[in-house]
Amino acid sequence: MSDVHRASVDDAAVLARLLWDFNTEFETDVDEVDVLEVRFARILALPAIVAVLAEDDGRAVGFALVSLRPAIWFDGPVSQLEELYVVPALRDRGIGTQVLELSRALVRDLGSPEMHINVDEVDADTRRFYERHGFVNVEEGADYRMLCYVGPTSSAG
C-alpha cells in the first residue's frame, strides 16, 4: 500500500514532474516542468486548492489536484477533480483509488458535497474507474448525458 497524503507547497516540484509525465504520456501539449512548478507553488498556497500525493518507497507514483469553487445550489463549495494520475507501471494496484478516496475526504471536510470531473468519451478505462467509484454522467431521473464544453473567454469572431 502506498503512502497517500495531502500535498503542500513543498511538493510543487514533484507534482510538476508528475503532471508533465501525465501529459507527455498522452501526447498532450504541456509547459516545461519548471513553469509547472512555479504554478503549483502558487496555487497550492490557495485555500481553494487541494492536492494529494502518492508515494511508494519514497518515490512519487501518483497525484490528484482538486479545486473548490462557490456553488449557488448548495451551501458548500463544489469540487472539481482537475487531474488524477498514477504512473503506468503501478496502475491497477489501487493507488488511484487511494488518491481519489483521500481527495474526496479532504474536500468533504472542507464542506464540498459534490465533485465534478471531466473525462474524454473515448477514454473507456478512465470512465470505468470513475463509474466504479460512483461518478455518473446521467443524473438520476434524467434520460440524457451531461456534457462539458470548453471555450475561450473572449467571444468568437
Results as ranks from 00 to 15, higher is better:
residue 3 D to E: 14
residue 3 D to Q: 15
residue 4 V to F: 07
residue 5 H to S: 13
residue 5 H to P: 00
residue 5 H to Q: 15
residue 6 R to K: 15
residue 8 S to T: 15
residue 9 V to N: 04
residue 10 D to P: 00
residue 11 D to P: 03
residue 12 A to L: 05
residue 12 A to E: 04
residue 13 A to N: 01
residue 15 L to M: 09
residue 16 A to W: 02
residue 16 A to K: 03
residue 16 A to Y: 03
residue 17 R to W: 11
residue 17 R to V: 11
residue 18 L to V: 05
residue 18 L to P: 01
residue 20 W to D: 07
residue 20 W to H: 08
residue 22 F to I: 02
residue 22 F to R: 05
residue 23 N to Y: 08
residue 23 N to P: 01
residue 24 T to L: 07
residue 25 E to C: 11
residue 25 E to L: 15
residue 26 F to H: 06
residue 26 F to K: 06
residue 26 F to D: 11
residue 27 E to K: 13
residue 28 T to E: 13
residue 29 D to I: 09
residue 30 V to G: 03
residue 30 V to R: 01
residue 31 D to G: 08
residue 32 E to M: 00
residue 33 V to I: 12
residue 34 D to V: 05
residue 34 D to K: 04
residue 35 V to H: 03
residue 35 V to C: 07
residue 36 L to P: 00
residue 37 E to G: 00
residue 39 R to K: 13
residue 40 F to S: 03
residue 40 F to N: 01
residue 40 F to P: 00
residue 41 A to D: 10
residue 42 R to N: 15
residue 42 R to L: 15
residue 43 I to K: 08
residue 43 I to T: 13
residue 44 L to I: 10
residue 45 A to Y: 02
residue 46 L to G: 06
residue 47 P to A: 08
residue 48 A to I: 09
residue 49 I to Y: 09
residue 50 V to A: 06
residue 50 V to G: 02
residue 50 V to R: 03
